[in-house]
Design a binder for these strands. Structure first.
Lengths: 116, 116
DNA sequence: CGCCTGTTTCGACGTCTATCTAAACACTGA
DNA sequence: TCAGTGTTTAGATAGACGTCGAAACAGGCG
């Protein structure tokens, strides 16, 4: 066992970086939280939903099911996961529910991958 | 069933966008591929590994196990997943294997989340 | 060559996840 | 109020995933 790490401050970033220790970089809670956001995106159906939301400012939930080719129940399940991850938000207007992305939240995920 | 989507060209992006259809935005293969990259990041242990790699230019595989607090077998498993996703690359130099991130690949994931 | 250490693979186990059907809930409109 | 449509939840099932211990493999070193 030998530690042979090279520190590169220029590559450090605020989200995935905590300090300068070569071994452990993020604490357990941060890793868990970050992994949770990635997990919310780790499904083709949810990627499709997100891409629909990125192409249109907002979409009716009634269109999502057909858009991803899944049952209404399954679609509701995926929307719930994305909602719970804070990546999308929906509000009911009369009969239908309209969903839209939460840009700040999406930016947070993106920034975690920044290379400085 | 009624389609009530609003198109916003300014928000369209090259990765998650294919055309202007409000329902389906990315094809199945693209969604699958993108979801696969997110899945590779959808675990606290792998997030930690990536953050270690972002803080240091390269790290010895022998340090990863202690860094994430997992068995050698489990650590090898996670490194393999990250390697197969193309997010990290490792080369053997003598006794040890040194890993480093693949910036272009990481940037690809990041760009998929771009809001334009 | 044989030993040692680092790394990977294997087999197994428990948990989580995606998916469906069917039932329950929410809201609108007559 | 009731009927109809959109949405969510419940129950069930099949598959994927994380984890471990132990065995197998690989490369230095005496």
């Amino acid at each position: 066992m030998e530690t042979t790490t090279t520190i590169s401050p220029a590559r450090q970033l605020p989200v995935l970086m905590t300090c300068c220790t070569p071994t452990s970089a993020v604490d357990d809670e941060a890793a868990e939280s970050l992994a949770g956001m990635f997990k919310a995106l780790a499904d083709p159906a949810r990627v499709k939903i997100l891409s629909m939301l990125l192409n249109a400012d907002e979409i009716c939930a009634c269109d999502v099911s057909a858009g991803i080719g899944k049952t209404a129940g399954t679609t509701s399940h995926h929307l719930k996961l994305l909602r719970e991850a804070g990546l999308i938000a929906g509000d009911r207007r009369g009969t239908w529910i309209y969903y839209r992305v939460v840009p700040e939240r999406l930016a947070a995920v993106r920034d975690a991958l920044a290379l400085g």
